[in-house]
Amino acid sequence: MLDRIRRGGDSATAPAAQEREGVDAAIERVLALHPQLGLARRSRTRLAPAVATSFAYVRALVDAVPAAREASAAAWDGDPYIHAWFAGPDEVASRISRSAELRAFFADHGDAPEAYAVLGMDMAERHVLGARMEGETMRRDVPQTTVSFNDHQVRMCAGDEAQLRMDIVRRLLDELALAGLARGAADKSRRAALERERALLKVRLQLLERQGKGIRAVIGGDVASDPGELARLEEQVEENARELSGLGLREDALERELEQVRAVFVQPGRHLSVSTRRLALDRMNVVIEPGGAGRDAAPDGRPGMPAGPPAGADLELRIARLPTLPPRVRAFSLVRFARTSLLPEKSVFEEAEQLLSSGLWS
């Protein structure tokens, strides 16, 4: 009984220990990205609570992602997600086999029968006119919305799903660290720009104040005789000096950089976001509107499948917002891909050449 109690206590403290390890590892990666931050006063102690906040936030995002789906030609007909993401059963292997990271994983893990991976895709929506059956009547020129998925990419792979999820958590924490360091770099750039501007303004002010020699001192017309211009320049110099003082002393640069990184980790939701997009799609990736003619009610009154072929399904898509300029959004999912489904590298290159040739001649 005592053994069971001890084991129960160990299992209760395991998540907390795992979180501490994850936070400590994230802090070490931050300092590895910018080693000088370690010289700031109590850098690790000050970062720890903020990084713990981000760790909990990121872990919740990753835990909410559904289990990995089998990505295969066989799954294309039965899994509505795989069917929506790929145009045909043969396209599943051809798209995923282009991943250099996936090939490297199988090469490094010769005994792994499958790989767990993150599949990312661009999702595009188009408004078109199509045809639809309403009872026994075919209606044409019906406004419809179609959804397509392109630019399939696999960048992260692991041997099991738990390891893949932990790798995603680490990558997202690294992304937050990079965002914080970028803010620190912007602070440095702003200081450099202000210092250059101040130097130029002072030189111009000196030139204007000295203008009064030569012919202009005799006949007038020198800029220095315009007190308004001098006043404006002096005001610009003072404003510039105020902005510089607001940035703090140059000696405090490491402290400010550490605060920039800490500020990002305190509010991770401002820099990383994953949303859920719910769509009802038929087999041709046409959006089925709620309560529309393409969807019947099930016997118990709940929404059912579209009446007659093509059948459809309700999908919940995970959408990540990328912190790029301009911001981009990508649909993504965890997938399982078998080693036996991996196409030979030559076949992938031949397919790419055919696509390129068709594009050039079309």
Rank of each mutant, 00 (worst) to 15 (best):
G301K: 12
V287P: 03
D226T: 06
V65N: 01
E255S: 11
D296C: 09
I5H: 11
G88Q: 12
V23T: 07
G184W: 05
R41H: 13
G269T: 05
R198A: 09
R283Y: 03
G88H: 14
D174N: 14
A193N: 12
R103C: 12
L322V: 00
A311R: 10
D79K: 08
G269N: 07
L230I: 15
R7T: 13
A185E: 12
N240A: 10
R277N: 04
V329M: 11
A32F: 13
I319Q: 10
G214H: 05
A280W: 15
E257W: 13
L2Q: 13
L317S: 08
A32R: 15
G294Q: 02
V286N: 00
G88D: 12
A52E: 05
Q236L: 13
E316Y: 05
I96N: 01
D222E: 08
P113M: 07
V142E: 09
A320R: 15
E19Y: 09
A162L: 10
K202W: 07
R183N: 07
D296H: 14
E91Y: 08
D122R: 07
M284V: 06
M123K: 10
R328N: 01
A25Y: 11
P227V: 11
F265K: 00
E91I: 08
E125R: 07
D300L: 04
M138W: 10
Q36K: 15
